[in-house]
Design a protein around this nucleic acid. Sequence first.
DNA 1: CGGGCCACCTGGCGGC
DNA 2: TGCCGCCAGGTGGCCC
Length: 272
Amino acid sequence: MPELPEVETIRRGLEQTIVGRTIEKVVLHRSSLRFPFPHHFEKTLENLKIQSVSRQGKHLLVDFEGPAPSLLIHLGMSGKVRLTSSAEITHEPHTHVDILFDDKKHLYYIDPRRFGFMRLMHHKHERLENLGPEPLTDDFNSGYLRKKLTSKQSPIKSVLLDQSIVAGLGNIYVLEALFRAEISPFRLSQSMDDPACERLVDAIKEVLEEAVCQGGSTLKDYKGIYGDGGYFQHGFSVYNRAGLPCNRCKEYLILCHKQSGRSSYYCGHCQA
DNA sequence: CGGGCCACCTGGCGGC
DNA sequence: TGCCGCCAGGTGGCCC
């Protein structure tokens, strides 16, 4: 589920509910997700008081008061975070982590495919290696993008999926932004001139901001920390719309072609 | 080294 | 009904 808008929605939900709370107990229902949990993971977190919840790209970062490592969470493809009162004990399948707070609420981590992971970051403010700029900050601008694109041999879509170029985009929002910028996902990066880079940067910011406002996109899985879905999927122009009419030209049908193993949806008429 | 491809997992869906 | 192949919001590692 999770690209930047979904992770940001979760971050906002957690910020309002767990900041100031203290972890009483951590229970793991398996020893690894994508990677093994750190040694002494549970004991390290117990009795820590949450100071803030932040986000870098698709990563969630939980910081604690006092000298303590930060908790880094990546949701992979199917990871979900659910906050429930003590009354709701309903464990859905694939619940791998159970964190109990001092107000007796549980934070569950659920992840059927187990592509997600958790880490402890011991160096405060340690930058996540290899993460590019946040797309919604001024560090991500057309000058920056143009410079990054000139040396690339690959099509524009692959570059935008590279988290070291810009952090937080995934298949959905890359394709939606390319449609808005009227740029084909197959266009070679080197052919992107200044006007094209400006259109693309604007489109990326616009799409992400709208999606964040709507609580992200819910496809198969739910997303909010209370199990509530987002609404941006109703605003898709191309994603999952193969065979439906393009809502810009109203004439051609949205196409779907594989691009390095993943589906690319686009309008062959509006995007060049 | 850059870029393409596969593997890692489970579940849901459509087709036969 | 049942089985099979294919697909899915991500990304680290391998290979050329």
